[in-house]
Computed example of a mutant assay.
Amino acid sequence: MWTNCSPSLTAGGWWKPDAVVFVESVPLGATGKVLKHSLRKQYGDDYLSA
Rank of each mutant, 00 (worst) to 15 (best):
N4E: 09
Q42P: 00
V21Y: 05
S25Y: 12
G12H: 10
L9R: 12
G32P: 08
K41D: 13
D18V: 11
S38T: 15
D18N: 11
M1S: 15
G44C: 03
V26S: 02
F22G: 11
R40H: 01
Y47F: 13
W2L: 13
L35V: 14
L39I: 08
C5E: 11
S49T: 13
K16F: 14
K16G: 00
L39H: 02
G13S: 04
N4I: 07
G29W: 05
A30E: 11
H37F: 13
W2R: 12
E24V: 03
V26R: 06
P17S: 02
S6R: 14
D46C: 05
S6T: 08
G44E: 08
V23T: 12
W2T: 13
L28K: 14
F22A: 10
L48W: 10
V26N: 04
D18A: 10
S25C: 03
L35K: 15
G12W: 07
Y47I: 11
K36W: 01
V26H: 03
G13C: 02
L48F: 15
A11C: 01
V26W: 03
M1F: 15
S6G: 06
V21R: 11
D45S: 14
G44T: 06
S49L: 05
G13T: 09
L9A: 12
V20A: 12
W14R: 06
V23I: 11
L9V: 10
K33M: 09
P27F: 06
V21S: 06
T31H: 05
S25N: 12
T31M: 04
M1V: 14
V20W: 13
K16Q: 15
L39A: 05
V21E: 07
R40V: 08
R40A: 03
P17G: 01
P17Y: 06
F22N: 11
S25H: 12
Y43K: 05
N4Q: 10
D46V: 12
L9P: 01
K36Q: 05
G12P: 00
T3C: 12
N4P: 00
A30R: 10
T31Q: 08
M1E: 15
W15Y: 03
G32R: 07
G32E: 11
T31L: 05
V34H: 03
W15T: 10
A11S: 04
V20T: 14
G32W: 07
L48D: 00
E24D: 09
W14A: 08
V23Y: 06
L35T: 08
L9H: 07
S6C: 09
W14C: 03
A50F: 13
P7K: 12
G13M: 03
Q42R: 13
C5G: 03
K16P: 04
S25P: 01
K16D: 04
S8Q: 02
A30I: 08
G13N: 06
K36V: 08
